[in-house]
Amino acid sequence: MAVRPQHKNRGAAALQFLASWALPLGILVLWEIASRSGVLSTRLLPAPSAVAAAFWESLRNGTLLTHAAISTERALKGLIIGGGIGFALGILAGISRLVETVFDSSMQMLRNVPHLAIIPLVILWFGIGEEAKIFLVAIGTAFPLYLNTFHGIRTIDVRLIEMARVYGLGRLALFWRVILPGALPSVLVGLRFSLGIMWLTLIVAETISASSGIGYMTMNAREFLQTDIVVLGIIVYALLGKLADTITRLIEARALAWHPAYRLNATREATS
């Protein structure tokens, strides 16, 4: 990557900042003009100002936060159950040949099944209650964490493990001080994949059958042609996804502080 010369003053930096926002802001302005002039039907796409107004209104009467809280709760429950199982299985398969032989080929086969394909079965099993949604999220999030944890443990430098043996580390110490920290970068990559799948699964699950949550809010709004609420729901999903990603980044920067590539500002310093 080419190294750009450092900016000589704040003015140039501000200009660059403005330039990077010019395109999205321009689109918003054009969109607003198109809506107001009637070129763009509000039944198809609401004006940005209408979305902002809907945001303010739903925030004021509390519906947005209630739905967002319920969605987040479902997402986290599913992640903790599914991700936890995936992580634990990944570790066991990583350190034990027996567990690997028993589980790995089955896991590799199952991970290729699109988990949303089992929605009809899930509805038969659990009805349309909370369990169905949490189950779907759990299934979706288990695989990325399993695969990346397993891979992370298997790619640990064997020379470090040999060193640890020479220096008298027992099995437990070897796990806590060498294997787990060594696998952590890969585990966190898995966590980020899982978080993406978590929101995706939840959106689908909530639009099919729910009486609360952001997905329900948007589906409900569709029936009343409230396109502003639908767009708002999409934006909220985007924000929640971004929030989850930011939290993982912070965890990475803290837990992987030893790793030159993960240090905060490291990427920025390297690219600017």
């Binding site: 020379r159 060193m163 640890a164 001080r177 790793h259």
Partner: peptide, 17 residues
Amino acid sequence: ARLLPWHRVLGNVGIAR
């Protein structure tokens, strides 16, 4: 050297804890 990159220098030296 085979130092554990995720432990600081002191933690590497006292690896047996």
